[in-house]
Design a binder for these strands. Sequence first.
DNA 1: GATGGATTTTGCAGTCGGTGCAAAAAGATA
DNA 2: TATCTTTTTGCACCGACTGCAAAATCCATC
Lengths: 199, 199
Amino acid sequence: MTTGPGPGPGLRDRKKEETRLRLHTVALRLAVERGVGAVTVDEIAAAAEVSPRTFFNYFATKEDALVNTDAGRADAVRTAVLARPASETPAEALRAVLTEHVRRLEADRELWRMRSELAARSPELAAKAAGAGERFETALVEAAYARTGTDPAVDLAPGLTARVAMAAVRAAYQQHRLAGQEGALADRLATAFDAAGLR
Amino acid sequence: MTTGPGPGPGLRDRKKEETRLRLHTVALRLAVERGVGAVTVDEIAAAAEVSPRTFFNYFATKEDALVNTDAGRADAVRTAVLARPASETPAEALRAVLTEHVRRLEADRELWRMRSELAARSPELAAKAAGAGERFETALVEAAYARTGTDPAVDLAPGLTARVAMAAVRAAYQQHRLAGQEGALADRLATAFDAAGLR
DNA sequence: GATGGATTTTGCAGTCGGTGCAAAAAGATA
DNA sequence: TATCTTTTTGCACCGACTGCAAAATCCATC
């Protein structure tokens, strides 16, 4: 994000980042208060103090502002899996990266709770979130194959392992949510990984 | 679909079913030829010889006409899992139902190839398809818990098993596609189920 | 500090997806 | 055949989204 010999991000970059975040949080707040369908892009832009046209400089669609799917997330997780020690099996690498990934998400628990709530109320949003989840899973699959160096048309295991790992994450999340978010998600996740054979 | 004491579906019902199918296949054809974004609802409706307003009597959105996500699919699979012999474990029931489900999908291989191709080219379509996949998985999870009669907040296993089963299906599909759809998908699926521990 | 260039925001007009409503058309029934 | 029910259609409208160009803001240089 460095723009040159200066001491850090310029005012422009900082303002862009702040605007993006403001649009996202304002959109979330309004949608939670009134429902996804009842909030217009005009209203979000006005509340965030930018023009509607500018809204679309930041987000391709209204749903993107609510889900804030960051294309970098899939890239980042792929990179993280590849950066694990070469001695680890795909299962070990995936497990370690996902455990850390979930730990970080927990730090934004309230944000995730709001997103889940909205997705439960809006099929379009649920679909957008599911699409993002699928891209995330695809990145894990690609990373697993990159680690084994095997041909996906021949070797089923890396693709299966990555997908099973994500299945364990989703199962642990559901249980955590239904249990009222009591207890440690990390423990549930560890239990799910063990039960799914990822060691 | 019987409308009364008559000998079968009335003209109305038959025409509705034909119209829905025509809209779907015309939409698919046009989208494959020109790209999802380049085809308008007006064009689809005209090619299917109905008015644009009628299009929306059949499909809630343009993407729905392309993906043709049938809400009944999730319900049907839930019913099928519940209808398996009570002596079967969730894993056995899920495996049997999914094996049959995939066998039926293979009968429409060309249709599924077109859908996959479109989803790869359109993020909105990919999201819609992912959303449908998630609802399908949710139905499997619900059916698994209904079979065990256990509390999802307490018992992780049924939810995990159902999700792992779907992971196996997706892994098998990917391998099948990358292998140029040669060989039997059913064999790949059986291998994936075995490797994932669903017996 | 002034100037010019680069970048971002904004306003605007337009297209398209999607909705509600009522009239017209088509099918079903007596 | 007349009447009722259901489906289709036309229409006006709203909101999401896009391309374009002018205005505003930031940045580098002198």
